[in-house]
Write a protein that binds this DNA or RNA. Sequence first.
RNA 1: CGGGUUGUGGCGCAGGGGUAGCGCGCUGCGUUCGGGACGCAGAGGCCGCGGGUUCAAAUCCCGCCAACCCGACCA
Length: 528
Amino acid sequence: MLRMSTLLLRTLRDDPADAEVASHRLLVRAGYVRRIAAGIYSWLPLGYRTYRNIENIIREEMDNAGFQEVHFPSLLPREPYQETNRWSEYGPDLFRLKDRKGNDYLLGPTHEEMFTLMVKGEFSSYKDLPLSIYQIQTKFRDELRPRSGIIRGREFVMKDSYSFDIDDAGLEASYQRHREAYIKTFNRLGLKFNIVSAMSGAMGGSKSEEFLAPCPTGEDTYVLCENCGFAANVEAMVTKVEAYAGNVPPAFEVFDSPNTPTIDSLVELVNNKFGENITGADTLKNVLLMADGQAIAILVPGDREVDLKRVAANLAGVQELRLFEEEDFAKFPGVVKGYVGPQDAEALGITVYADPRIVIGSHWITGANARDKHARFVTHGRDFTVTGFVEAAEVKAGDTCPQCQTPVVIDRAIEIGHIFQLGRKYAKALGLTVLDQNGKAQVVTMGSYGIGVSRAVAAIAEQTHDEIGLNWPREIAPAQIHLVAAGKDGSIFEFAEKLAKDLEANGLSVLFDDRRDSSAGVKFKDAE
RNA sequence: CGGGUUGUGGCGCAGGGGUAGCGCGCUGCGUUCGGGACGCAGAGGCCGCGGGUUCAAAUCCCGCCAACCCGACCA
């Protein structure tokens, strides 16, 4: 039984000055958490009980699904991470330290290497697979900007699972088992969530889905169709287009267009010059990028920006993608900044990709690759061709749902889980193989599956709180019963004491406000 | 890393060259006792850190650090 008379708890009347989002504000005011440093928090008794209730639900569901719990250190040696190249790849987000002998260590941001090595150390036969193991462990990431209280901290608790299979069909089955277990888990946690495809897969990316808990303060944006339930990460949103049905345009025509640095100024000039009534959507924007050192052009309608994340996610095999800089323009003297068009790309040595909206047969107003000149009736398939289509334009509310053609909305959410078919990257790098039926070594294929445990506390708080305060689902609350003894007569306290004990005897956890020196008002406010 | 804001008792804030203040919380005594009670008496401060100007710095100047918000980044 928790007794308010002795509980390590001090509620605050005022919102803390450094808390913005509801979960942070309320968790601090209610005496659940305290900040220790940027993105690092302590849990007080009420908070820790809540946290543990959530952790236990997750653990139960993992165990129910047949996954086995293990535990790794947080403090890890450099070598395994060196072998997979993440010691350098992870960059400044990795907390690094040295021991007294000067050897390099790190605080684990995620544990793929350790799981892989654990299995490698024990198992060596296809008969041992499939296997799924998990841990609940504190993770460390030196985020550039921790924010939103415990939603994005530098130290946080994550449940991470890994599956090990001999082939792709096995991986798919393990993936589906985790997916089912996650659905059960989040339902029990009382979270509203959408399962969102995180990569298009169209270009060979591994299968990956995110579990997103919708809430206005979430930091992830995603696309949602309120009609059919389609949900996708913006990177994975697929553009629906119709084949070009207009007339065959006249031959393309170059015209003078001085002082048109922006799409708006170009539209105004064209409308004045030709008596047209076009919009930015009739112009073609050519955005030049460097993809792993190679110059590429991305074509999007002039009324849309290029979303670099979408391009990167949908261009197969590209590691580094960035905008053209001045020195890049210097290397391509034929490229006239502000007057780029796709007509001469081949001669200029630039590979061209188009957003799907640039359908074959459509014609556009675009740069003429000469200073102060644009061209119109520039037609895809006649006046220029592209190497391929790639999802590139920013996604906007009102875009068409790829499943049911309804206009979609853009929604915000907290990422509470992520499931991912990793494949053989880590097994290959660390030499995890098993012998198959033929006695031949096979590289194991892996899946990785994460749930933000501490983040779930915040996500549930965000979704369930009301104007008055925190409002936990029963299974998660620090206690199932909050019993308040209010009054001056000692018999009230005696009765309440007995009632509290009876409730506990019947298997209910009780937070008993047995304070004799607090007014009823204080007790009610604290309860809330 | 760019832009913005802020650092003063545990929390929320005021003060802006000469005795460091208010509200909440905390301690003691008394009154009150069902929606954050009241009175009286108290405890609690390197005014973010370092340097400078000055007879005198929380306050002015220089430098640094930290936190928060927006963005970039991150999944």
